[in-house]
Amino acid sequence: MQSRRVIMIVGNGSVPDGAGLAIDAAHLVIRFNDCRSVGRGGVKTDIVAVCNTGRPALSMLGGGRWKTSAAVRQAREIWSVRSGVKFAAMRRALAESHPDLDDFCDDYTIGFESFARATGRKHRVIATETHERLDRNLARFEPPPYVAPSSGLVVIADVLSSFASAGDDIVLAGFGHSGWEWHPFAAERRYVDALVAQGRLRRLPHSSSSDLPQGA
C-alpha cells in the first residue's frame, strides 16, 4: 500500500540539522522566491512560489540570475502568490498609509506567466479568495496593523484549502516567523501553531533524518 503524500513547504529561514535528507525524501517540495533554503535544506524543488508584485518580483524577472538558478530550473511549476486583483485594490489606501511602498502593488504576474510558458512549466496564481479568507482567519489572533501576510503563510493557507488532498502530510521547515516589519509575524506564528494543534500540518522536528516516509 502506497504511503500518503508528503508535501514539504520550505521557507527561507533556518532549518534543523538533517533537514536536507528529509526534505529531499518528500513527494513534493515547495520553495520561495530565490530559494535560499537550497543547500542545508536539501535541493529538491518541485514548485517555486514567488512574490509577484513590487521590488522582489522586478528583481527576479530582471536580473536573469533567478531564472537560471538550479532550483528554478528544476521546478515543474511557478506559483504567483499575490492576487493582482487583491493588491490593486490595496493601492489607494497604501498610498496614504505607507507612501514609501509606492511600488508595492505593481503587478508582474504576466512576466512570471510568460517565463513559465516559455520554459514549459505550469503557472498558477493563488486566488483572491485565499487572501480574503486568510485575513479573516488571522483576525482571530489580533494582529497589529499590517500590509499583507507573508508569502509563506499565503502558500500554507492555499495548500490546505485548495491544493492538498485528504490524507496528505503537510510539513513545514524554514519558518522562523520573522522578517519584514509589515508582515504580522507574531500572529502568523500563533495561526500556524493552531493549525499544528488541530493536526492539519506539522513542523519538521529537529531530529528529522528518518521520520518521514520515503517519497519519489
Results as ranks from 00 to 15, higher is better:
Gln2Glu: 12
Ser3Leu: 08
Arg4Phe: 14
Val6Ser: 08
Ile7Val: 14
Ile7Asp: 00
Gly13Cys: 05
Gly13Glu: 09
Ser14Tyr: 10
Val15His: 03
Asp17Trp: 05
Ala19His: 02
Ala19Leu: 02
Gly20Gln: 11
Gly20Glu: 03
Ala26Tyr: 00
Ala26Met: 03
His27Lys: 08
His27Arg: 11
Leu28Lys: 12
Asn33Pro: 01
Asn33Tyr: 02
Asp34Gly: 08
Asp34Glu: 14
Cys35Leu: 03
Ser37Trp: 06
Ser37Val: 09
Ser37Asp: 14
Gly39Arg: 05
Arg40His: 12
Gly41Asn: 06
Val43Glu: 13
Thr45Cys: 15
Asp46Asn: 09
Val48Cys: 01
Cys51Glu: 07
Asn52Glu: 07
Asn52Val: 03
Asn52Gly: 09
Asn52Leu: 05
Pro56Asn: 02
Leu61Cys: 00
Gly62Arg: 10
Trp66Ala: 00
Lys67Met: 12
Thr68Cys: 07
Thr68Gly: 05
Ala70Trp: 09
Ala71Tyr: 00
Val72Phe: 00
Val72Gly: 00
Arg76Tyr: 09
Arg76Cys: 14
Glu77Ile: 03
Ser80Asn: 12
Val81Ile: 15
Arg82Trp: 03
Gly84Tyr: 00
Val85Ser: 11
Phe87Ala: 00
Ala89Gln: 11
Arg91Met: 03
Leu94Trp: 10
Glu96Ile: 15
Ser97Phe: 01
His98Pro: 07
Pro99Glu: 09
Asp100Gly: 11
Asp103Gly: 02
Asp103Trp: 12
Asp103Tyr: 13
Phe104Gln: 03
Phe104Glu: 04
Asp107Met: 05
Asp107His: 00
Ile110Thr: 14
Phe112Met: 01
Phe112Val: 02
Glu113Thr: 15
Glu113Met: 14
Ser114Met: 14
Ala118Cys: 09
Arg121Asp: 01
Arg121Leu: 03
Lys122Ala: 14
Arg124His: 15
Arg124Val: 15
Ile126Pro: 02
Ala127Asp: 14
Thr130Cys: 11
His131Gly: 00
His131Ser: 13
Glu132Gln: 13
Ala139Gln: 14
Phe141Gly: 08
Pro143Gly: 06
Pro143Phe: 11
Pro144Asp: 11
Pro149Ile: 05
Ser150Arg: 01
Gly152Val: 06
Ile156Arg: 01
Asp158Glu: 07
Asp158Cys: 05
Val159Asn: 01
Asp168His: 09
Val171Ile: 13
Val171Thr: 06
Gly174Ile: 04
Trp180Arg: 06
Trp182Phe: 15
Phe185Glu: 04
Phe185Met: 06
Phe185Ile: 04
Ala186Ser: 10
Ala187Phe: 07
Tyr191His: 12
Asp193Ala: 10
Asp193Met: 01
Ala197Thr: 07
Gln198Lys: 15
Arg200Thr: 12
Arg200Ala: 10
Arg202Pro: 06
Arg202Ala: 03
Leu204Cys: 00
Pro205Val: 05
His206Phe: 13
Ser207Cys: 09
Ser209Asp: 10
Ser210Tyr: 10
Asp211Glu: 11
Asp211Leu: 11
Leu212Gly: 04
Pro213Gly: 06
Ala216His: 13
Ala216Phe: 15
